[in-house]
């Protein structure tokens, strides 16, 4: 599917996504489940992993470059550089382990603020391992509350049963497609003139930053 001949580009948009969260919450499994419809017990990620996924959504051909980072503290200084230029960040926690959820606000949300170079980047909160319903300790409502507070998308899924895995990535991408500034970054060459898009002194600009 590479290098289709002629002028037509291989894809309309290239988006960079990043997956973060504590170690062992199932980031790599989630990614594998999404990219190759498989579930297997994976070795812990060393530092960072990377997958490419092509998909067509809303009539647009998309290429997703998804960076899967290791959750271990030792790797955190390394992974910080992968936040750069990401249009979407997926924050994953394990619904059966409360600390992975609390660490999102204690650690990971702060990391995003610190390292993300993109003001408008879309954040998504994902509660993984809902297949272990009996062991669940973090309720769906808590997840929703967190998402509301931090202004992110929210979904619960299971990498193992593949429940909501597709939706998780698709919803994030749809949201990116809805955000003009992110769209402009992802597209090749299409520039937008912001002075023509909106009056320079729009008063609501301040609200969008927080």
């Amino acid at each position: 599917m590479e290098s289709s001949s002629g002028a037509a580009p291989e894809f309309d948009y290239l988006f960079k996504l990043l997956m973060i969260g504590d170690s062992g919450v199932g980031k790599s499994s989630l990614l594998l489940s999404f990219t190759s419809d498989a579930f297997e017990e994976l070795s812990p990620t060393i530092g960072v992993d990377f997958k490419v996924k092509h998909l067509t959504l809303g009539g647009k051909k998309l290429k997703l470059a998804i960076w899967d980072t290791a959750g271990q503290e030792r790797f955190r200084t390394l992974t910080s550089s992968y936040y750069r230029g990401a249009q979407g960040v997926i924050m994953v926690y394990d619904v059966t382990r409360r600390d992975t959820f609390t660490n999102l606000s204690d650690i990971w949300a702060k990391e995003i603020d610190l390292y993300s170079t993109n003001q408008d980047c879309i954040k998504m909160l994902v509660g993984n391992k809902v297949d272990k319903e009996s062991e669940r300790v973090v309720s769906k409502k808590e997840g929703i509350d967190f998402a509301r507070e931090y202004g992110c998308l929210f979904i619960e899924c299971s990498a193992k049963t593949r429940v909501n895995v597709e939706q998780c990535f698709e919803e994030l991408v749809l949201k990116i497609l809805d955000t003009p500034s992110l769209l402009a970054e992802g597209s090749a060459g299409n520039k937008k003139n912001i002075f023509k898009q909106k009056p320079p002194e729009s008063t609501d600009a301040s609200s969008s930053c927080c």
Partner: peptide
Amino acid sequence: GDSYSFSAQLETEI
């Protein structure tokens, strides 16, 4: 690309 799993050479070294 997808053909070969991205091996984080540097991270492995670390």
